[in-house]
Design a protein around this nucleic acid. Sequence first.
DNA 1: TACACAAATTGTGTATACAGCTATGGCAAA
DNA 2: TTTGCCATAGCTGTATACACAATTTGTGTA
Lengths: 258, 258
Amino acid sequence: MTSKARQGEDGGSQTVRALLRLREMILSGQLPAGERIAEPAVAEATGISRTPIRAALIRLQEEGLIEPIRSGGFRVRAFSAAEIRDAIEVRGVMEGLAARLAAERGVGRAALSVLQGCVREIDDLLASGELDEARFAAYVEANARFHDALAGASGSEVVQRQVVRANALPFASANGFVRVQAASADARRTLTIANAQHAAVIEAIAQREGGRAEALMREHARIAHRNLEHVLDNPAVIGLIPGGCLIQGPRDAAPVRK
Amino acid sequence: MTSKARQGEDGGSQTVRALLRLREMILSGQLPAGERIAEPAVAEATGISRTPIRAALIRLQEEGLIEPIRSGGFRVRAFSAAEIRDAIEVRGVMEGLAARLAAERGVGRAALSVLQGCVREIDDLLASGELDEARFAAYVEANARFHDALAGASGSEVVQRQVVRANALPFASANGFVRVQAASADARRTLTIANAQHAAVIEAIAQREGGRAEALMREHARIAHRNLEHVLDNPAVIGLIPGGCLIQGPRDAAPVRK
DNA sequence: TACACAAATTGTGTATACAGCTATGGCAAA
DNA sequence: TTTGCCATAGCTGTATACACAATTTGTGTA
């Protein structure tokens, strides 16, 4: 019972807790980019012993958020603008693959209507007035649901897995830059265009137009490219995006590592 | 000194040793697909304590070779023909991306000549006589070198990383089915075609034809599709491919799990 | 004041001990 | 003979201890 209660609270095992907690500490900048992650320190800060923390670190390395140090241990990665652009491109390619497979192999009526439901929700949201915090949260949620459903529509666990993986880096993910969009002036315009692409992909899938579906999802991901440029030009908004503290300023020399 | 000597022998830390050893045990069928991997048993068999073995298991899970069991621990994965096809498709897409980026961004003279060197080597190999064991090993090596160099030519560490990842599953990798090809009658023909594709990709990259480069690498990966079909039709050769024991027979019902 | 060297502290990698849980086999009862 | 339950054995997840390595700090000297 106790274990089940704890499971409900924060996700089961110490390892999972450590993973969530560490990710949070990295993305919030509590563990600064480029710096070694000292296991004993994290252990004390979280109240979790070193063993599960170690397991979480391995997973975070596979995820790409941290990198091994030659002399042992890990360090928080810093990402150049070019790397982020590439990560976004990879996501676009993977989601493009998912969309193409969905179109080529066909998807059931149910899956299609889930996708359509997301688009509808977002359309209603955009039509219903100002983009306040609540509506914005709803948008983020619906958008994530659309992208998840699309990965599932590929009909391939292998592909779905890779799509999830491509979304692992926070600033590469589908919702990575939306908070920046919200802050910008033409938020509604961009989101409207994005949702039109959602709708077009669904149409392409329904009509078995694989090439079109793929191209659309690739282009869709490139919205994030434009948002990234915006962030690089206005470093003030960098705090809005998750893991923003991991982004190396475009003019920063690589930090000297002793 | 002792530690450095051991490092030379089999790759450094106990964790690395455990990773290599476990992968070998899985791919050789020593740990049967579908069966739970008992850590104490592996620990005793390898002489490595449970801690590094555990670390290796986590890495193998991220790699996709093993999957977690609900009640704890891991089990060796079994792969259906459909999953293998999808994994090959994913590799094709990722290598296609690498080739496109190489073409779009341009590659240096040096990188280009590395690629050309591989193609030349393979051509010479194919022209030089019977495909004996030695020549065949040289082919495998040169082929791997080509694919590595191509991933590097993308100019993006992020992309390179994903390509490597897509090649992690042994039967999805570029050299996964070559031994099958060697056994088949028209080995020379297939390898000749494959190398023509290599050459064409280089040409496309040199001429900055991104779309062509991408399409070529996708098609190139599909050679593995044909080889897979061949294997499924001739289960006798399944022992030739690494990790063949992980392939579920096409007509096999899922093995009963008690 | 700067630099080199030594000592101490800190941290990783690994082994091991232990608690809780799962699964399996046997035993009893119907 | 079959079915249900209980006990036992084994395994996982976690904590902790320890050795070796690295880094940092402090000290002495040029």
